[in-house]
């Protein structure tokens, strides 16, 4: 190709001299998605870091549930209730946000980290809702609001498995 002369190339681009330029500009990225993604990412990461710190403490100084017993029971295929009964000395599996009262133990802190990670999308959805409101996406405001409410109810423990 002659240097300095513009030519069409497959895929819609233009080659000008030795440098390729695209014909089209990248489309604008919706702000609601960006907000959701950023909030969810950072909170999830924070939760993972907390859970790693908790596990390190658990490995070093033990925890609410005995770790060797837990490992043996896990690999033995024991049920949830049997594991809690055998390794934490409780009559059945704890319900609700049990880790909040066990934050002096490594596994309590690790579970808090997991809980923070599992809540990341909830905060993200509320942030995403703000983005949808800014974009004035009519019906999507209602959809995002309903999803955010369902997720919040789930985290709050209002949706639970009953025996």
């Amino acid at each position: 190709m002659e240097k300095g002369k513009a030519s069409e190339v497959p895929g819609g681009g233009i080659v000008y001299g030795e440098t390729a330029y695209s014909k089209e500009k990248a489309p604008e990225v919706p702000i609601a998605g960006v907000i959701y993604g950023e909030i969810a990412y950072w909170i999830a990461l924070l939760g993972i870091l907390i859970s790693i710190v908790g596990i390190a403490i658990y490995m070093k100084s033990g925890g609410y549930a005995d770790k060797t017993c837990l490992l043996n029971q896990l690999w033995g295929g024991a049920s949830v209730d049997a594991i809690w009964k055998g390794c934490a000395g409780v009559s059945k599996a704890p319900e609700g946000h049990w880790y909040l009262s066990k934050l002096s133990y490594g596994d309590g802190i690790a579970m808090l980290g997991i809980a923070v990670t599992c809540s990341a999308a909830v905060f993200g959805m509320w942030g995403g809702l703000f983005g949808v409101l800014r974009s004035k996406w009519g019906m999507y405001i209602v959809l995002a609001l309903i999803v955010a409410i369902i997720l919040t109810m789930s985290v709050a423990g209002l949706i639970v498995i009953k025996e």
Binding site: A65, L74, E95, I114, I161
Partner: peptide
């Protein structure tokens, strides 16, 4: 699942 105690940090 978490509320049922089914998640073990280890």
């Amino acid at each position: 699942y978490i509320m049922r105690g089914g998640v073990f940090p280890l």
